[in-house]
C-alpha cells in the first residue's frame, strides 16, 4: 500500500499532538501522570483551569477603596489600576480606555488591549463574533496568556466598582459582611452579604445589567434572586416577598426585580444583598465610596 503524503501527515499529527498536549485537560492529565511516574516537574495547569480560556479567575486579594463616587464609565479604570498599578493613574487609564473602546467598539476589547496590546485585541475582535465578551475574545487567542487573566480581573473589579445599590442609600445596614454570631443558629459563622433593614414590599432594584441565573424559593433564603452580571460578578437578593423576574430573564440596571420581605430564615423584614466575585463572596461595601449607616434591626 502506497502511503499518502507521509511528511504532511506527520506535521499535521504533530500539530494535533501539540494542541492536545498543552491545551486540553486530557493532555494535562497525561503530562501530570508522566511527571509523577518519572518524578519530574510538569507545567500542566490544574485540570479545571483549562476551561473559560483563562478568564475564570479568582478576585484579586486587594481592591483599592474608591476615593469618591465614580461614574460607571471610569470604574473599569479603577479595576485596571487595582490589578496593575504601573499602568498609570486611574484618570489616565480611563482616558486610554475611552480611546481604545472607541477604536475597538467594545469595553471588553479595550480592557484586553490595555493588558495584552492593541494588536492582540484587534486580532481577537476580528475573530470573535459581534459584541463579544472577554471570554469570546480570549477563545480566539492562544491560551495561557497571563494578560487575559489580568484583563479578566480588571473587568471583574471594574464591574464591582460600577454596581449601583439595590435599595435607597438611606436604608441602614443591620448586619454587615463577615464573621459574626448567628442570630438564629448560634455559633460564629460567615455572613456572606449585608443585611439591609427595610420594610416589607420595598422595591429591590438590579444593581447592574445582567441575566437572572436563579429565581427560586427555599426555607433558608426565602424568595431568592441570583443575577449574573458577567465577568464573574454575581449578586444575590434574599428573603424577598415577591420576585418580579424569572430564570433567564435579562434585567437592566435600576430595574425593579423584587419586593423585599421576610421570607425564609429571617428575624424580620430585610434584604440580604450579596456580591460574589469569581465565585467567592466579598463585602459589597469594599467597592463603594458611600457607606450606608448601620443600625440594629432584622437579620438572617
Amino acid at each position: 500500500m502506497k502511503p499518502r503524503l507521509p511528511l504532511v501527515e506527520l506535521v499535521l499529527c504533530a500539530l494535533c499532538l501539540w494542541a492536545a498536549w498543552y491545551h486540553t485537560p486530557a493532555g494535562a492529565l497525561v503530562r501530570t501522570a508522566g511527571a509523577w511516574v518519572f518524578r519530574t516537574h510538569t507545567t500542566a495547569r490544574p485540570l479545571l483551569a483549562y476551561y473559560g480560556a483563562g478568564t475564570l479567575v479568582p478576585p484579586p486579594e486587594h481592591a483599592l477603596p474608591l476615593p469618591g463616587p465614580v461614574p460607571p464609565a471610569q470604574a473599569l479604570a479603577y479595576g485596571a489600576f487595582a490589578v496593575r498599578a504601573d499602568l498609570g493613574s486611574p484618570p489616565a487609564i480611563a482616558s486610554r480606555l475611552r480611546s481604545l473602546a472607541q477604536t475597538l467598539h467594545s469595553e471588553d476589547a479595550a480592557a484586553l488591549a490595555l493588558f495584552c496590546g492593541e494588536e492582540t485585541a484587534h486580532y481577537a475582535m476580528e475573530h470573535a463574533g459581534s459584541q463579544p465578551h472577554l471570554i469570546d475574545l480570549a477563545r480566539a487567542l492562544p491560551p495561557s496568556k497571563t494578560c487575559v487573566s489580568q484583563a479578566a480581573q480588571a473587568l471583574m473589579l471594574g464591574g464591582a466598582y460600577a454596581l449601583a445599590w439595590p435599595l435607597p442609600e438611606s436604608v441602614r445596614i443591620t448586619s454587615p459582611f463577615g464573621m459574626r454570631e448567628h442570630p438564629l443558629l448560634g455559633g460564629r459563622r460567615l455572613h456572606a452579604g449585608v443585611d439591609l433593614g427595610v420594610m416589607k414590599g420595598a422595591p429591590v432594584r438590579a444593581v447592574a445589567d445582567g441575566i437572572v441565573r436563579r429565581a427560586s424559593t427555599d426555607g433558608v433564603n426565602g424568595r431568592i434572586l441570583v443575577v449574573d452580571h458577567g465577568g464573574g460578578v454575581v449578586t444575590s437578593y434574599c428573603h424577598n416577598d415577591e420576585l418580579l423576574v424569572g430564570d433567564g430573564d435579562h434585567v437592566r440596571r435600576g430595574q425593579m426585580i423584587a419586593r423585599s420581605g421576610n421570607t425564609g430564615r429571617s428575624t424580620g423584614p430585610h434584604l440580604h444583598y450579596q456580591l460574589d466575585l469569581g465565585g467567592e463572596p466579598v463585602d459589597p461595601l469594599r467597592f463603594r465610596a458611600q457607606r450606608p449607616k448601620t443600625a440594629v434591626g432584622a437579620s438572617d
Partner: peptide
C-alpha cells in the same frame, strides 16, 4: 504510530 496518535489528539482537541 503517529497517525493514530495524531487522530486521537485531533478528536481530544475537538472534544475539549
Amino acid at each position: 504510530i503517529f497517525l493514530p496518535l495524531g487522530m486521537c489528539a485531533l478528536v481530544a482537541v475537538g472534544t475539549h
